[in-house]
């Protein structure tokens, strides 16, 4: 066999595998349809209740008719392959999607019998009630102390310096960062390690006194040790807050959450107790994802 033939053959096989890949892509990007959710989406006395939430980015229908309750003092994990709409859904809960041009959210999201997705709602008190921790730690380029005091300051929560001081200290303690930074509160928050920065962001969030904390893949930028510290922290914070965490890691979801929601192509496919989802998934797609067939 001449070298030319070999090259030709290689190109040919490349081509077929490329065709296969294109086909796969096609099935993934095909305009998806709305599906029924498997499992119990409602809980008793929910903190947040979502009815038929849809998100559109221009033409793209990113989240389709999601119904879901978030209970009090529970950690609920959202899992699913990337681009499945879990982060987008999360950002509906404190209206962070407002900041994205061309993004439209429909449906109702109730907190305290009030639809927070209604047009007249001011996002300022909402975001004070629903805090958020982002994928990449994003401390402000200010001192550690100023970072934590930022929220109480803008909302005017403290009446005097002593109260503010107390809020900062308590928040840092709750975020488990106090012991590490108590001697260097004046140093810039950006000088901390990645895991410390993320805990600083958590402290900054809880300093405002929210009821719900949204976490958008909070550990994806961290090493395993820092991740373990944050996961412990999430478990402790559960006593005070409802926590919604989006994660890529199924292990993490299994470790920290009580309930788990599985998203696929903008649909909420299945919701249930975390143990049930990971040991005995009902939906075929959930099972495929859990067993690592894609994702």
């Amino acid at each position: 066999m001449s070298s030319v033939d070999m090259i030709e053959k290689a190109v040919q096989s490349e081509r077929t595998s490329f065709r296969q890949a294109a086909k796969d892509m096609d099935s993934l990007t095909r305009r998806p349809e709305q599906r029924e959710t498997v499992g119990e989406v409602r809980v008793e006395d929910p903190r947040v209740r979502c009815n038929d939430v849809n998100v559109y980015y221009g033409e793209k229908h990113a989240v389709m008719g999601v119904n879901l309750d978030i209970g009090r003092n529970e950690v609920i994990a959202m899992i699913g392959p990337s681009g499945c709409g879990k982060s987008t859904f999360l950002r509906c809960l404190n209206r962070m999607n407002d900041t994205i041009v061309g993004c439209r959210v429909t449906g109702q999201i109730f907190m305290d019998d009030q639809d927070i997705n209604a047009s007249g709602i001011d996002v300022v008190p909402l975001r004070a009630m629903v805090g958020m921790v982002f994928q990449k730690p994003n401390p402000f380029p200010k001192s550690i102390w100023e970072n934590v005091a930022f929220g109480p300051r803008i909302h005017g929560l403290a009446h005097n310096k002593a109260e503010l001081e107390e809020m900062v200290v308590t928040s840092l303690q709750r975020a488990g960062l106090w012991e590490e930074v108590k001697d260097r509160l004046e140093q810039p928050g950006t000088g901390l390690s990645g895991g410390q920065q993320q805990r600083l962001c958590i402290a900054r969030t809880i300093a405002v006194g929210p009821e719900v904390i949204l976490m958008d893949e909070p550990c994806s930028a961290l090493d395993p040790i820092a991740t373990a510290v944050i996961e412990d922290l999430i478990d402790e914070l559960r006593g005070h807050y409802s926590i919604v965490i989006v994660t890529h890691s199924m292990q993490q979801a299994a470790r920290v959450s009580q309930r788990t929601a599985y998203f696929h192509l903008g649909n909420l496919i299945e919701v249930g107790e975390t143990t049930q989802i990971f040991t005995n998934p009902v939906h075929k797609l959930t099972e495929d994802y859990i067993t690592g067939r894609f994702g």
Binding site: D122, P125, M129, H155, T170, V229, G239
Partner: peptide
């Protein structure tokens, strides 16, 4: 980890009921 666990209704200024009232007042 820090072992201190403030209670939810402690008067530490981070109570969410209080928060929402203050925020609404300053809105």
């Amino acid at each position: 980890m820090n072992s201190q666990k403030p209670t939810r209704d402690g008067a530490d200024g981070m109570d969410s009921r209080r928060t929402i009232e203050i925020v609404r007042a300053g809105l």
